[in-house]
């Protein structure tokens, strides 16, 4: 009997971290998403080592080998000036991920802090922040981003600013609604009773309640940000040639459809791959945390 009771007690002893890992590893979309995201990040970091023709990133021309279909030498074929498309896709991935990283690293903290403040204090703070958010959200995202990008000179930094200026509002809205629900709980009142500082209540009591929703939203967002960044480049408002960008490559390759299909379809597949990865990861995290009403 002693053995039995010991066995029965054993699962209780598993650490919380292990239980989370177990649930995560049993979720196919989370695992596939994570794998894709890791592959993308690794190729981006080690781009100069993996790519066969790193010199093709810049303004190189090799007209003798232009428009070549995918082959053993050129995995994704070559473009209209004879550059290796695989090399440029890998470097383009680097730019897309950088874009997502910078945009989210600015928009998420800004939106989170504003959402916390609006939700916790209410009153004028809420009116100012949330009405501004509502106005920003009422304008279609792409139109807003295009307007900002068109006013400024088109380059990578402009795209980042334009997207980040729009993106924080989504996070402000999400965090605001969670804060409103959490603020009225007894444990917040208890913390106030004990004289905990506003900083403690906002960042140590309420924010941890937002973390799961924030993680889901942020990973879903990474895919969307990359998509919007590529859209901007496709329309010529984002990154300018010769810097390799997935959106720009799709646009320039589109002129040669359908005969030289690989020039736009394969960079397009790369966009699909990376945003699919982030979306699967986000969905997986959502299943795992059981978070509702994100998106």
């Amino acid at each position: 009997m002693a053995h039995l009771s010991e066995l029965a007690a054993e699962p209780q002893r598993l650490s919380n971290a292990y239980q989370n890992w177990y649930r995560f590893s049993r979720n196919p979309s989370a695992v596939i998403g994570t794998a894709i995201v890791i592959i993308c990040i690794l190729t981006a970091i080690f781009a100069p080592l993996i790519t066969p023709y790193p010199e093709h990133v810049g303004a190189v021309v090799n007209f003798r080998e232009r428009h070549l279909p995918p082959s053993a030498d050129y995995w994704f074929g070559t473009d209209n000036v004879g550059r290796d498309i695989f090399t440029r896709v890998v470097f383009g991935m680097r730019i897309s991920l950088l874009l997502a990283l910078v945009v989210l690293a600015t928009a998420v903290p800004v939106g989170t802090v504003l959402g916390l403040l609006a939700g916790y204090y209410g009153g004028w703070v809420e009116i100012v922040i949330m009405r501004f958010t509502d106005i920003a959200l009422a304008i279609p995202g792409l139109v807003m981003v295009m307007a900002v990008a068109a006013v400024l000179s088109p380059d990578l930094l402009t795209s980042m600013i334009a997207i980040a200026a729009l993106w924080w509002t989504w996070h402000a809205r999400l965090i605001y609604s969670i804060t409103r629900q959490t603020r009225v709980q007894d444990y917040i009142e208890a913390a106030e009773t004990l004289g905990a500082s506003k900083f403690h209540i906002l960042f140590r009591e309420i924010l941890p309640n937002c973390v799961s929703a924030l993680a889901v939203k942020t990973s879903l967002d990474a895919g969307f940000v990359i998509l919007i960044g590529s859209t901007l480049s496709f329309l010529g408002l984002g990154i300018q040639p010769p810097t390799p960008d997935l959106g720009t490559m799709v646009a320039s390759g589109a002129a040669f459809l359908p005969s030289y299909w690989w020039e736009s379809v394969l960079p397009g597949c790369a966009i699909l791959f990376v945003s699919l990865g982030f979306n699967l990861l986000g969905d997986g995290l959502r299943d795992m945390f059981d978070v509702e009403d994100v998106r």
Binding site: Q185, D186, Y187, A190, P208, N209, V211
Partner: peptide, 11 residues
Amino acid sequence: FQDPMTSLNPV
């Protein structure tokens, strides 16, 4: 506190 369901921070 009277309500053991809402008086503890779930996270």
